[in-house]
Design a protein around this nucleic acid. Structure first.
Length: 672
DNA sequence: TTGATCGTTGATGGT
DNA sequence: CACCATCAACGATCA
């Protein structure tokens, strides 16, 4: 447990004006609505709830069908979330035996009116959340409270260093696109809030009876997580009523979710989060001189970074707590004249980037997570573009969650990437680590994201973002979409000629290939000379290592089981393309798209006429005059194209392989 | 206006 | 091992 906290500043200035009841007198029956703050230490919203001196305190988590069915959440993240909830619940109970986390199994928009009435609630307190869906959800709850004459207080700034909306305001109303802009805006707001101490006692919970309260069972379709559920298992977390099958507001089990055991070794909960923090802070050299680009993405047991990102996401670790604990180390080292690292590469720098993405997202809303209608996102005619709902309401033109297969080859590349079967061991090792452990190093994310988009497959960054959304423990839309746009060179970053090699990049940190030997066991015995390029190993060397390099990989399974051929030899796939050739194709594609210069909110992107601006032979679904995003699929178009004929696509690919000259001329195309 | 500089983390082939 | 120029060359910022 951390030592005593810094002096507490009153948080009153950080709250929204409460709405609803003006009357402060009388007994207060308060709901503290938990969402992104599954902790006791430094919870400004919990502190505010306690400052009301409630006669009854309800610690509520609403089990939101939006998260269960419409977000992509894999088994590992469910485990992390539910572990965090159980841990918080135990902490609440330890402060007051009547207390626990009350998991309410219904959408907040429908259940709040019932709870407010049933439990005689006078106040609702929760932490501000600037995610696009969260804003709409919270507006609805605030409105419900207003109508029912219940006071509601939205406490700002607990999730990020500064309130994202205030950052945007201080950045001229624009999304923060560089770390310098973020720092300047932050400086205008002022010092990061100091952390608050954990409460030492809690008031009792009130009556939690739900007698006569009917559960509104949510629509289970569409279920974006259907594919991840166990064979034959059904998602049933709403099956036992509002208070769950035992009627005790318990945390849903993996079984109820229709999920198998989590495979990740990284577990959730504030107790573990604080242990991790203590360990990081205790290593003063590490904390004081941390430089992200110098940490090895190949390191495992232990990893080269802190693994705190999932805890920041779920709020089991306070970002303010983290900031000030690091600052204390830096301060000490400065006084001792020891070297300290600086943003953007330092630990503080990492937290600043997170705030940069949150503020950028706050300014863009739903569109931050997609290309179409996103004014900061460059338009590139990527393979596997999303389908859109032009008339989605109230926000038009949102992506639907499905995509067009404009190229069967690209779809095959995507599946091989997703399952760690690309034939590039560095990429496959990372993707398998992601799937089994739910976490990979930041630079590993760079490697696989570059490979999928601008540095290999030329596949839409939204496809990659969706896979990360499902598999990452630390997934949060702001950072995920932001980083994907960064790596795809469509926003935040534009030096697309700086391209990560799937061979050289990993080798730089791990020439022996220890990382690959762990995560790609087929190659464990291969000589280090071939470990990053096994297709170059002579047959005799392959045989000696007990592996055969052949075929196109198995994308049916989870990508973490070893394939064998009829002779019992392990099989590892051949590389799915020639990387340097693909690199050239991608760079020329990016160069052309940059010259065309469209952004996601351009009318030509939305009506499909963007095609007329691209050369037909350019990479991606560029043929014809109109079609693709938001437009009518022309006759020649490759929409609906699971159907697109293999024979149409393959020759295009072959033509490229031979005709590098054509591409070089495209590459030299002048700008504007 | 324009040119120089810099930007979280490239690869290669030098010294 | 640290540092450098080259490769080809984006865009925001600032003098």
């Amino acid at each position: 447990m951390p030592p005593k906290k810094a002096k507490v500043q009153p948080k009153s200035t950080k709250q929204s004006e409460p709405s609803g009841k003006d009357n402060n007198e009388g007994p207060r029956r308060v709901i503290h609505w938990y969402r992104t703050d599954l902790r006791l230490h430094d919870s400004p919203s919990l502190a505010h709830a306690l400052s009301l001196n409630p006669t009854a305190l309800y610690c509520v988590w609403t089990w939101d069908p939006h998260y269960v069915y419409r977000a992509r959440v894999g088994a590992n993240r469910w485990q992390f979330l539910t572990d965090s909830q159980r841990n918080l619940s135990e902490s609440l109970t330890s402060l007051n035996p009547t207390q626990k986390l009350l998991v309410v199994r219904e959408a907040p928009q429908t259940v709040f009116p019932k709870l407010l009435k049933q439990w005689g609630i006078t106040d609702v307190v929760f932490e501000k959340d600037t995610d696009a869906y969260a804003r709409a959800r919270d507006d609805a709850v605030v409105e419900i409270c207003r109508q029912m004459d219940v006071r509601v207080t939205v406490v700002k700034g607990g999730r990020t260093l500064w309130d994202p909306d205030e950052i945007v305001k201080c950045n001229g109303g624009k999304p923060t696109m560089t770390i310098t802009q973020l720092q300047a805006a932050g400086a205008k707001i002022g010092e990061v809030d100091r952390p608050l101490p954990a409460p030492t006692s809690l008031p009792d919970v009130g009556d939690t009876s739900l007698e006569g309260v009917e559960q509104s069972v949510p629509d289970q379709k569409p279920d974006f997580n259907e594919g991840g559920r166990q064979e034959g298992e059904k998602e049933n977390s709403y099956g036992g009523g509002i208070a769950g099958p035992n009627g005790d507001f318990g945390v849903p089990t993996m079984e109820e979710l229709g999920l198998g055991e989590a495979t990740t070794p990284h577990r959730g909960g504030e107790t573990l989060a604080l242990e991790v923090l203590e360990k990081v802070i205790a290593d003063e050299d590490f904390t004081g001189t941390f430089e992200k680009p110098k940490t090895a993405p190949t390191a495992f047991e232990p990893q080269s970074t802190c693994l705190t990102s999932p805890h920041l996401h779920f709020g089991t670790l306070s970002v303010h707590e983290f900031w000030w604990r690091v600052e204390a180390v830096l301060d000490k080292r400065r006084k001792e004249k020891k070297p300290v690292s600086e943003p953007p590469t330092s630990l503080h720098g990492q937290l600043l980037f997170r705030d940069m993405y949150f503020a950028a997202q706050a300014a863009q809303g739903y569109y931050f997570a997609q290309q179409a209608s996103n004014s900061i996102c460059r338009f590139i005619p990527w393979h596997l573009p999303s389908t859109h709902d032009i008339s989605s309401s109230p926000i038009p033109n949102l992506i639907t969650g499905s995509y067009t297969i404009d190229s069967p080859v690209a779809e095959q590349w995507f599946q091989r990437w997703k399952h760690g079967q690309t034939g590039f061991p560095w990429i496959d090792g990372l993707m398998r680590q992601l799937r089994t452990e739910g976490w990979i190093h930041h630079l590993g994310r760079h490697a696989v994201a570059c490979f999928l988009t601008r540095g290999g497959c030329y596949i839409h960054w939204e496809r990659g973002a969706e896979v990360f959304e499902e598999l990452l423990l630390d997934h949060e839309t702001a950072c995920n979409s932001g980083n994907w746009m960064w790596l795809a060179c469509v926003a935040f970053y534009s030096q697309f000629y700086r391209c990560y090699s799937p061979v050289a990049f990993g080798k730089k940190w791990d020439p022996e290939g220890a990382f690959i030997r762990k995560y790609v066991p087929e190659l464990a015995a291969l000589d280090k000379k071939y470990i990053y390029e096994p297709w170059k190993a002579p047959i005799a060397d392959q045989r000696a290592a007990g592996v055969v390099v052949k075929g196109e990989g198995d994308v049916s399974g989870k990508g973490d089981s070893v394939q064998r051929d009829d002779n019992g030899s392990m099989v590892y796939p051949k590389p799915m393309f020639d990387f340097s050739e693909r690199r050239e194709i991608c760079i020329s594609g990016l160069k052309e798209a940059y010259a065309v210069g469209l952004h996601g909110d351009d009318s030509r992107v939305l009506d499909g006429s963007w095609k007329a601006l691209f050369k037909d032979e350019g990479e991606g679904p560029t043929r014809g005059q109109k079609g693709g995003i938001g437009g009518d699929a022309g006759e020649e178009d490759v929409d609906k194209s699971a159907g697109i004929k293999q024979e149409q696509m393959t020759p295009r690919g072959k033509k490229r392989e031979r005709g590098q000259g054509t591409l070089d001329s495209a590459f030299k195309k002048t700008r504007k």
